[in-house]
């Protein structure tokens, strides 16, 4: 029985179908898994400089930038001195909303990240259809690139991969499955 007798059943049906469609095509579709990887978040010393890497080199879409409230939760989690000023930027890929974030730390001695980390503790790995273009852009940006490497996936596909650091030493690896040509 349809709830709300004064509302035509057809409207409920349309609403129900619409909700099904929306729930299927939005991130809440992951809710059944109980857990969903939302994003990785990386500290940088200069957000405007980092945009050139994540937006212009990698091709991610910059969604939003905002100043984080002083003393907010990010200070606790990252163990950032309260004297620092933080800005936060979030990026999407065409199929992944808000999949990557950057947190800019300003105003603290020793956190300027001028030297790349000698020993990164995390890498992010991105599949790029425009592998050669990304590498050319990274070289043009003056980033530190490692030599290209050929690989075979666990399911037998072969491809190319190449790692580079952003300006703060965060490690990025891009790859492409070989049988595809650059679009």
């Amino acid at each position: 029985m349809w709830p709300g007798r004064d509302i035509p059943c057809g409207r409920h049906l349309i609403t129900g179908v619409a909700m099904l469609v929306v729930s299927f095509f939005t991130p809440t579709a992951y809710a059944d898994d109980g857990i969903r990887f939302q994003r990785s978040n990386h500290l940088v010393s200069n957000l405007d400089r980092a945009f050139r890497v994540y937006r212009d080199v990698l091709g991610l879409k910059l969604e939003a930038v905002r100043t984080l409230p002083r003393g907010g939760y990010a200070y606790d989690l990252f163990q950032i001195p309260s004297t620092a000023a933080l800005r936060f930027a979030v990026f999407s890929s065409p199929s992944q909303e808000n999949i990557l974030a950057l947190t800019e730390v300003r105003g603290v001695d020793g956190l300027d990240h001028q030297e790349p980390f000698r020993f990164p503790r995390m890498a992010i790995v991105l599949e790029s259809r425009e592998f050669d273009t990304v590498i050319r852009r990274a070289e043009g940006e003056g980033l530190m690139l490692f030599d290209e490497n050929a690989f075979t996936t666990s399911d037998g596909r072969s491809g190319r991969q190449r790692g580079f650091h952003d300006h703060d030493g965060n490690l990025i690896v891009v790859y492409k499955i070989s049988e595809e040509t650059d679009k």
């Binding site: 939005t26 991610l60 992944q96 790995v125 790029s128 259809r129 595809e180 679009k183």
Partner: peptide, 24 residues
């Protein structure tokens, strides 16, 4: 394809230009 919080299907039978694969 997702824009400004709204998702819509894109009738493109190809991979997106860039995709976050994993954190390590």
């Amino acid at each position: 394809y997702i824009t400004k919080g709204n998702a819509m299907t894109q009738s493109i039978d190809e991979k997106p230009p860039v995709r976050f694969q994993r954190a390590n």
